[in-house]
Design a protein around this nucleic acid. Structure first.
Length: 301
DNA sequence: CATGCGTGGAA
DNA sequence: TTTCCAAGCAT
């Protein structure tokens, strides 16, 4: 099999144009890469950068995070959004300590079995941290391949097995080159072949792009109307968690009552936070971040 | 497999 | 001002 022109063009472009992101530093280690991948799930790079530095300064390895409380993980998550990821990342650290001696596993099935690690993240860690040859398929890669190879302006809403096969066929045989190609596809989608306003004049594969060749039909908008944020349970959860995050220990429910007027919705949101393992009741009157209790004191003497 | 799950900045 | 997200995951 010959290495496709498309892949070499994108890889060369990447070598010249890649952003120098800290988790791309050679030899950075699997744990920093894993943390970056989880933080980057639905959160923009510019907001991840400071949180990533702070997180790794405090918890340089899985064992350090596993030994701390979920509440502190939620606090250090700051306002990255989707704070369940913070709790899952800590659970992931616990599992890494228990199952793998504190070292991030390098096998795809072992990675996939960790909390908060799905198809994309497992493959990203295996490829970027361990140099293995796996297709790494995120929304950027699916869009790039959909356009340049298939000629479609948009990719499907979710990654399918067919997407993995299509991407695998684009990868060089040599594992390190394959990992670089995957990073290059992602970068091209993030920087040039963006969803709404692709910068085709700056694209390294404009000359071989099927979408371009077929007249570049306009991307169609989202298939379904996205849920509005204002007034949703999501917003109320965010407000409640904001108070709990900025307070150490239990918060009386009267204080939580002030964040939202609708009793029914507020109670539902709070119950959701408890159900999701982010918050726990303390007695009859208060709530706190999960595990945000007094640390066990060593006995005197 | 369609939904729920935060956030803050760009268009 | 309102809209639309941005390197997904779990259920």
């Amino acid at each position: 099999m010959t290495e496709p022109t498309f892949t070499t063009l994108v890889s060369r472009w990447y070598e010249q144009n890649a952003r120098d992101l800290p988790w791309r530093v050679p030899g950075i280690g699997a744990w920093p890469i894993l943390v970056s991948e989880v933080m980057l799930q639905q959160t923009p790079v510019v907001r991840v950068l400071p949180a990533w530095h702070a997180w790794l300064a405090r918890w340089p390895d899985p064992a350090a995070l596993a030994a701390d409380t979920p509440a502190e993980a939620i606090r250090m998550w700051g306002r990255l959004g989707y704070p369940r990821r913070a709790v899952r990342l800590r659970e992931c650290a616990v599992a890494i300590v228990e199952r793998h001696g504190g070292r991030v596993p390098d096998q795809l099935d072992q990675l996939l079995a960790l909390p908060g690690i799905g198809t994309y993240t497992a493959r990203a860690v295996a490829a970027f941290a361990y140099g293995q040859r796996h297709p790494v398929v995120d929304t950027n890669v699916r869009r790039v391949v959909s356009r340049a190879v298939a000629g479609d302006p948009d990719a499907g809403p979710a990654t399918t097995p067919a997407d993995l096969v299509a991407c695998a066929e684009l990868l060089p045989i040599e594992p390190a080159a394959a990992a670089l190609a995957s990073a290059a596809f992602m970068e091209l989608g993030a920087i040039v072949c963006t969803a709404r306003s692709p910068r085709c004049p700056a694209c390294p594969v404009e000359s071989v792009c099927a979408w371009r060749a077929s007249g570049q039909a306009a991307p169609t908008g989202p298939t379904r109307r996205p849920q509005r944020y204002a007034g949703t349970d999501r917003q109320v959860r965010g407000l409640l968690l904001g108070v709990l995050r900025d307070t150490t220990g239990p918060v009386p429910h009267q204080r939580l009552d002030q964040v939202w007027h609708d009793d029914v919705q507020r109670a539902r949101a709070l119950a959701g936070l408890v159900k999701d393992g982010l918050v726990e009741p303390v007695g009859e009157e208060s709530f706190r971040l999960i595990g945000d209790g007094p640390v066990a004191q060593p006995l005197p003497g």
